[in-house]
């Protein structure tokens, strides 16, 4: 049985690397005695694939992994069992069974939403949003593989939204990930700074979710 789970990584676990998050999940799966499937060979490992890589330093509202089970299991029970043993800050929200043909997370997910909590005047933030959406080109030195080369972020920014929260104004970006254009959260930080947001005004950054974008529509990886 192949399943996909949606989970949360809270702020207290924001410094875990992807590998560390994976180890945390594997060990939780063992402690909870989930009937996971093992790979063949001399180095058997749990058939777990962490489809979305949360950058170190960010916490995540909705992250996903795929897991292969040895047999069937009630998925509500699986979530409960895992949540009983997961450390504070990590929480399985829901899980669903996958068809054999469902493409992997790595292939399917092509959009992420990053939230920046800003301590600034709402008016100023609105102006920044307008400027970003109005621009034909947003050149930022790439932080990824092509370090130093300017990268145009504009085509990768699909949507911007603001919301008032307790901690400040939350400015949310829906951006492309993977192919064809990968926008990193630190490039968005650079963009905000370029647009006049002082570093100390950014009080928190998190990833709200990961999405599958088809023809302009955004779907949760649990839907597709």
């Amino acid at each position: 049985m192949r399943i996909r789970a949606e989970y949360r990584i809270g702020p207290e676990l924001r410094f875990l690397s992807n590998l560390e998050t994976m180890h945390m999940m594997e060990r939780a799966l063992r402690r909870a005695r989930i009937p996971f499937a093992l790979s063949e060979g001399f180095n058997p490992h749990i058939r777990l694939s962490m489809g979305t890589v949360l950058p170190v330093g960010l916490w995540g509202e909705k992250e996903y992994f795929d897991l292969e089970l040895d047999g069937k299991m009630d998925l509500e029970e699986l979530c409960q069992d895992l949540n009983r043993v997961l450390p504070e800050g990590a929480h399985i929200i829901q899980a669903r069974e996958l068809a054999v043909t469902t493409p992997s997370l790595m292939k399917a997910v092509n959009c992420a939403a990053y939230g920046f909590i800003l301590q600034m005047m709402q008016q100023d933030i609105a102006t920044i949003c307008q400027n970003i959406l109005k621009a034909d080109e947003l050149l930022i030195p790439s932080r990824g593989k092509k370090k130093g080369v300017d990268k145009d972020l504009r085509k990768g920014i699909y949507k911007i939204d603001t919301q008032l929260t307790e901690a400040g104004v939350c400015l949310m970006f829906w951006v492309g990930t993977g192919e064809p254009l990968n926008i990193r959260y630190d490039e968005l930080t650079d963009l905000l700074q370029q647009q006049g947001v002082p570093t100390q005004a950014i009080v928190d950054v998190f990833r709200e979710g990961n999405y599958i974008r088809i023809n302009g529509g955004l779907y949760s990886p649990l839907e597709r």
């Binding site: 702020p11 207290e12 410094f15 875990l16 690397s17 170190v56 330093g57 450390p87 504070e88 009080v203």
Partner: peptide, 20 residues
């Protein structure tokens, strides 16, 4: 620590505690 210090160091998970 979590807000001002740890985001600026390598391998911040060394300094957070709170393990299982």
């Amino acid at each position: 620590l979590f807000r001002d210090i740890l985001p600026r160091v390598s391998k911040p998970i060394r300094y957070t505690g709170n393990e299982l």
